[in-house]
Simulated scan of single mutants.
Amino acid sequence: MTLALTLRQHLGQNAGKDPLRLAVASAVDALATACIDIADLIGRGALAGITGQAQGRNADGDLQKDLDVRADELIRQALKSVPFAALASEEAEAPEIRDMTAPICIAFDPLDGSSNIDSNMTIGTIFSIVVTPLEGQAAFTRPGTTQLAAGFAVYGPQTSLVLTLGDGVDIFTLDRDDKTYKAVRRRVQIPVDTAEYAINASNHRHWEQPVRDFIAECLAGVDGPRSKDFNMRWIGSLVAEAYRILARGGVFLYPADAREGYTDGRLRLVYEAHPMAFIVEQAGGAASTGRERILELAPRTIHQRVPLIMGSIEKVRRVELLHTDPNAASKTAPLFGRRGLFQV
């Protein structure tokens, strides 16, 4: 039987002797190691003193759980030996500047989906690696197209690491026996024609009309303009939603809405939307705000929030069309327009 490619072998093959790629490989390896420690901590839960209870709020005003803090500490510890120029965490108010002559900058969300801790559901870690900007430029202020690598760990039935180094997407699963990540899927492509969508439908009354129109098309099923029945999913964990899309296709929507604090979207551009968009595009999908390509956005601040619509390219493009063309809903099928017989 052929032995599975390990993460370190993959990183070594990609890096060769190139100094920039070697720096990226060093960072990914350190992040992946930290994720093993985080997975162990999550697995022990209350036995390790993890309660899932809020301990205050982070720099951006979100509730901060005990595991958020521990995960942030574990990642920072793992990165101590990695040469980086700047480090940005969702849990910190400002970036940590170390050595601006170093080749890379690293941004990370130490624990995505922490609201799921106390219900024992899937959570994860997200990271993004970019080249250090030119002298005089601030770190983490350039478009997502400048990313060198991005990935996320999923802490579920298996601990898996999804990774792109800018040349496709690969998935590695942690072998708990020897603490080694081993390749389980190479060059992942998002299935195109999957009838699933993920959105928090309880916020329907707050959505913009284009989002309502798209969901109405899905709800209409085989009798509607999509001519198929759809299933709705919602886990409340970005990493879990993204992993499902990579495995089964579909579309994920976390749009802006009319609620206070949500008018510019809710997910962070630097820590969440940029790395997820890079991964999804590398797997043949698309990621958008509904009006703009996520990877073309340049952050104004490290905690900037954006809407995120990602997944199978045809579905994302349909949502974009509904945003940019007010008549697109009625153009598909008159009976299902906003004033039609089957208005939802």
Rank of each mutant, 00 (worst) to 15 (best):
A86D: 07
A86F: 04
S89Q: 04
S89E: 01
E90R: 06
A92G: 08
A92P: 02
A92I: 10
E93I: 08
A94Q: 15
A94V: 15
E96T: 10
R98T: 03
R98Q: 03
T101D: 04
A102W: 06
P103I: 00
P103A: 05
I104L: 03
I104H: 03
C105R: 13
A107K: 09
A107S: 14
A107G: 10
F108S: 12
D109C: 09
P110H: 05
P110W: 07
P110C: 04
P110K: 06
D112K: 04
D112T: 07
S114I: 04
N116C: 06
D118I: 13
D118Q: 14
N120F: 15
T122A: 15
I123Y: 10
I123F: 02
I123S: 06
G124N: 12
G124A: 10
G124W: 13
I126A: 05
I126K: 04
F127P: 08
F127K: 07
S128C: 15
S128V: 14
I129W: 09
V130Q: 11
V131M: 14
V131N: 14
T132I: 06
P133V: 11
L134A: 13
G136C: 01
G136Q: 00
Q137M: 14
Q137C: 12
Q137H: 13
A138R: 08
A138W: 04
A138M: 13
A138Q: 14
A139S: 05
A139L: 02
F140W: 00
R142E: 08
R142N: 14
R142V: 11
T146C: 12
T146G: 11
T146N: 15
Q147V: 10
A149T: 01
A149D: 05
A150L: 06
G151D: 01
A153K: 04
Y155M: 06
G156I: 01
P157V: 08
P157T: 10
Q158P: 00
T159C: 05
S160N: 07
S160I: 05
L161W: 09
L161I: 05
V162W: 02
L165M: 15
G166Q: 12
G166F: 08
V169W: 00
F172D: 00
F172S: 02
T173C: 06
D177N: 09
D178S: 00
K179T: 13
T180W: 01
T180L: 01
Y181L: 06
K182C: 02
K182Y: 02
R186H: 10
V188R: 00
V188S: 02
Q189P: 01
I190T: 01
P191K: 03
V192N: 13
A195G: 05
E196K: 09
Y197E: 09
A198H: 09
I199N: 11
I199V: 12
I199Y: 07
A201L: 14
A201T: 11
A201N: 14
S202H: 13
H204Y: 13
H204S: 14
H206M: 05
W207F: 07
Q209M: 11
P210K: 02
V211A: 03
R212S: 02
D213M: 02
F214K: 11
F214W: 15
I215M: 03
A216V: 06
E217G: 14
E217F: 12
E217S: 15
E217N: 12
C218Q: 04
C218M: 13
L219G: 14
